[in-house]
Computed example of a mutant assay.
Amino acid sequence: MKKIITIIIIGLAVIYLIQRIVKKININTKHHIGEVIDEFNGVRVYYNGGIDHTSGRNVTKDGYNIGINYQCVEFVKRYYYEFYNHKMPDSYGNAKDFFDKNIPDGAINTKRNLVQHQNPSKQKPEINDILIFNKNIFNPYGHVAIISNVSETNIEIIQQNPGPFSKSRELLEINQKDGFWTIKNDRVLGTLHLKSTNTN
């Protein structure tokens, strides 16, 4: 019995190590790290290879921290900086940290200086909102993206670093019931919205 347990533990350790290595290297030879693969409103999306790959930190000339190059957070913050000239008061944190569960729906998230909406929310998601995904067993950091299109039945997101074979654009279903809009994905925590915008 001990031998079987030892074999299982060694097997799990090997799987874990392989997974950690694959998440750091580029296994998709069709793209190179730093390649422009998409853009939205003139803001570029770069290819990152393995989701844990890092390529230094993007900092503006005046010292504002955009984030680690080619990660999802870097794109979202760069988008808000370039498109809106918006700087977040707290310029650090992982993707999941963009959402504060203690903030009521429609209140200001002071760390980001943006209006936070939960999922579900009375507010329909809007183009240019930041969408925040919670962590999961394979990704302890969470994920963020920009909403690039909205209809009555779905939203389109544009994202950086979704994985070496994943697309930069993705559709998520939405619906409205009893006055609340729900983004039908269990990992979606909610959205962040620049108060002065009105795109719909």
Rank of each mutant, 00 (worst) to 15 (best):
V150D: 02
N109E: 06
V73M: 08
K96F: 02
K124R: 15
F138V: 03
I147N: 05
Q71E: 13
I66E: 02
N69H: 14
D105L: 04
D62G: 08
S91T: 00
K101D: 09
S151D: 13
E74T: 05
Q118P: 00
N134M: 01
P120N: 05
V76W: 03
F133V: 04
Q71T: 14
L131P: 04
N119P: 08
L114T: 07
N65Y: 15
E74W: 03
S91H: 01
P89T: 05
H143Q: 14
V115G: 13
I127K: 15
F75L: 11
D105W: 00
V144D: 12
D100Q: 09
I157L: 06
D97L: 00
F98V: 01
S151T: 15
P89H: 01
M88H: 06
V115E: 15
S148Q: 08
R57K: 07
N136G: 07
Y80A: 03
I103F: 03
E74A: 11
N139S: 07
I147G: 09
K101N: 10
P125N: 08
E74P: 03
E74Q: 14
Y81G: 04
Q118T: 15
N65S: 09
I157A: 02
E126D: 10
F83P: 00
E82N: 14
K61V: 11
K122Q: 12
Y80R: 05
I68R: 11
K96M: 07
L114H: 10
E82V: 10
N113M: 08
G63H: 05
N119C: 10
I158L: 07
H143A: 13
V115I: 15
I108D: 12
T60W: 06
D97K: 01
A95I: 07
K96Q: 12
Q71R: 13
K122I: 15
I158T: 10
D100A: 05
I147L: 07
K96D: 03
Q159I: 06
R112E: 11
N69F: 09
F133M: 15
Y80D: 13
Y92V: 03
Y81R: 13
I147K: 06
F99C: 01
E126F: 08
I130N: 04
V144G: 10
K101F: 04
K87R: 15
K124V: 09
S91E: 12
I68M: 07
A95C: 04
K77E: 12
N113H: 12
I157W: 04
N102K: 12
D97P: 00
D97Q: 10
N119D: 13
H117F: 14
N154P: 00
A107I: 01
A145T: 08
E126L: 13
A145D: 12
K61P: 07
D105F: 01
E156V: 07
I130V: 14
N102E: 05
N109Q: 11
E74L: 07
A95E: 02
I103D: 11
K124I: 08
P120G: 11
M88E: 13
N113P: 03
Q116M: 11
D129S: 09
E82R: 13
E156K: 05
D97S: 10
F138G: 03
Y80T: 11
I127R: 13
F99T: 01
L114D: 04
